[in-house]
Design a protein around this nucleic acid. Structure first.
Lengths: 136, 136
DNA sequence: AAAAAACCTACTTTTTCAATAGGATATCTT
DNA sequence: AAGATATCCTATTGAAAAAGTAGGTTTTTT
């Protein structure tokens, strides 16, 4: 299950896209608009910055800004930056040591298929896809 | 991420399918073959029994047996029985209360799409698909 | 009666999640 | 230079879940 870190990250980027201007957007404002803790966002944004998904400027008048156009962000790369791991099972996680039962495992192909399915979906959607308001 | 409960459940059912006979298969044997704790399996099997995925017989000569043919089990229903929830985000979980931001939420459709994608995959594969040994 | 199985429930240990907290540092404005 | 306003950095906490361990009870066959 995707954690609040990833979900908040998504919402922050949507917020940044919707409030783009020439200047930078302070997280203080985003926190209010999104109804989440500023302090928590301050932990999440460095993860996005590290992957060059945003630029952050310190000091008065500072804040964050997108580094590219919304349609150039895949949801996959955003979640990748914030979630610990997107693999559906332990043994497919980043840097997992090879399972001793690997050669006899009947499920690994199935799990790989699931991972591929999920990854494909996540990489097929972009931030731009989330910008239209639509409710049911 | 799918927990060991779900993964072990899958392996138990594969094991049962591979060791089918007229009699019942005791978990003691499955535990040895699969290299997992018997005591832990004893917690998992009741979940499968509850959904009529297996029948269990107590007493000497007892054990468990599949209730239908391997091709009639979808992986989805197996994981459904053992995992707490298969939803990718909290607000799509079983019996989640409706989010106060629901009407303005820009991500819900995306998450629903992810859930549908995952469910489709899980329901398209059957236990029979996992029975062929294949390694790479 | 004894053996072998499932059944039931409580406990423990470890890890992760979701924040909260408090200050340090950088930058702009006046 | 001073003050305001940001990000940045790191530690701590509280609650929940994950993954098992443990011990006994009941059922059934031999």
């Amino acid at each position: 299950m995707v954690s609040t870190r990833g979900r908040y990250a998504l919402r922050v980027l949507i917020d940044l896209a919707n409030n783009q201007k020439d200047s930078y957007v302070p997280m203080k404002d985003v926190a209010v608009r999104q109804g989440v803790s500023l302090k928590y966002l301050e932990q999440i944004l460095p993860l996005l910055k590290q992957q060059n998904l945003v630029v952050g400027i310190q000091g008065k008048g500072g804040g964050y800004r997108l580094t590219k156009k919304p349609e150039e962000y895949t949801i996959g790369e955003i979640l990748q930056a914030t979630e610990k791991d997107l693999a559906p099972v332990e043994c497919l996680a980043e840097g997992a040591l090879t399972c001793p039962r690997r050669s006899e495992c009947k499920t690994i192909a199935f799990w790989e298929g699931l991972k591929n399915t999920v990854d494909s979906y996540l990489n097929s959607k972009t931030l731009a896809d989330l910008l239209q308001t639509e409710y049911s």
